[in-house]
């Protein structure tokens, strides 16, 4: 596995990185964990002219609470999320998803932001962040902007980022009310891309469901938000009937295709099963069954 020729820079500041990326043209790529990019390069499916390695830039590796949001820097590894007390306490959907990301080797190096920017519809973080209503911060020579994850993920391997933009962090709103979340993933083996993944976030409001977030992995051209399911849950009484109905609606929202992992029909059925199960678990975590 020998990649094609490429240039490589490892700037020490975000300003230098942004400048290098902008100067590298359309074929320049940001290298963070490299767990998707490097394999593609070794297969020569990707032949970037320039890699801008951001690993030496200070200040991008933190997970921190800041004004009702969780800020996750561009160099936060999946495994950092696995070990985060803050995440475990406040965002159980993230805590559930993190240890299911690929395998231990990938989790040690791969980053949350890098995974989002790769926009693989089989990526787990896309669904988690959609369910949580998160947004990313992107920096370019012309300044900084925030992009909701729902607008970031455009299509398979396609984001709304401009070629000269670097995502510096993802911002996750921290739920204020009693809440729970869960992530379920069916994979053929550890390290395989998901056959189906389901992220749910449930916020309770005086015994009823307040906000519900449901998003699906590997059943569409991008991570899919189950909008109808979210809508019927909002304001509903939590319980088996509502969760079953949400499961059916989420299955309708999925856009799976037949492939080696299973038929579209099968994947829809797993979505339905998983949404129901994940909502039940999220409800338990939120203390709803007490």
């Amino acid at each position: 596995m020998y990649p094609a020729r490429f240039d490589y820079v490892a700037p020490r500041s975000l300003e230098d990185a942004v400048e290098a990326l902008a100067g590298g043209g359309d074929d320049a790529k940001v290298l963070a964990g490299g767990q998707s990019l490097i394999p593609l390069m070794k297969l020569r499916f990707a032949e970037p002219s320039l890699l801008v390695d951001i690993n030496r830039i200070p200040g991008l590796d933190g997970i921190a609470e800041d004004g009702g949001r969780l800020r996750i820097g561009a160099l936060v590894r999946h495994n950092d999320v696995v070990g985060s007390r803050l995440v475990a306490d406040r965002l159980p959907v993230m805590a559930a998803a993190a240890p299911l990301i690929s395998d231990p080797l990938v989790r040690n190096l791969g980053t949350v932001c890098g995974s989002l920017c790769h926009a693989d519809p089989a990526g787990d973080w896309g669904s988690v962040m959609l369910a949580l209503g998160a947004e990313v911060v992107a920096r370019s020579p012309s300044g900084e902007r925030t992009i909701p994850v729902s607008e970031l993920l455009v299509d398979t391997f396609t984001t709304s980022l401009a070629p000269d933009e670097i995502v510096t962090e993802v911002r996750v709103p921290l739920p204020q009310r009693r809440s729970g979340g869960h992530y379920l993933k069916l994979e053929r083996k550890v390290g395989d891309f998901a056959t189906v993944g389901v992220a749910v976030q449930l916020e309770l409001d005086d015994g009823r469901i307040g906000r519900a977030g449901i998003a699906l992995t590997a059943v569409g051209p991008r991570n899919v938000t189950a909008t109808e399911a979210e809508r019927v849950l909002a304001g509903a009484e939590p319980g088996p009937d509502a969760f079953a109905e949400a499961g059916r609606l989420a299955a309708d929202a999925a856009e799976p295709v037949d492939d080696v992992r299973g038929s579209a029909r099968y994947k829809r059925a797993v979505v339905q099963t998983f949404v129901e199960r994940a909502l039940t678990r999220a409800h338990e975590i939120a203390g709803g069954s007490r």
Partner: peptide, 16 residues
């Protein structure tokens, strides 16, 4: 050929 690398040709690891 479908199964031309270890993301398509699955081998069990110690995890499963």
């Amino acid at each position: 050929c479908i199964g031309s690398n270890f993301t398509d040709y699955l081998l069990p690891t110690s995890w499963e």
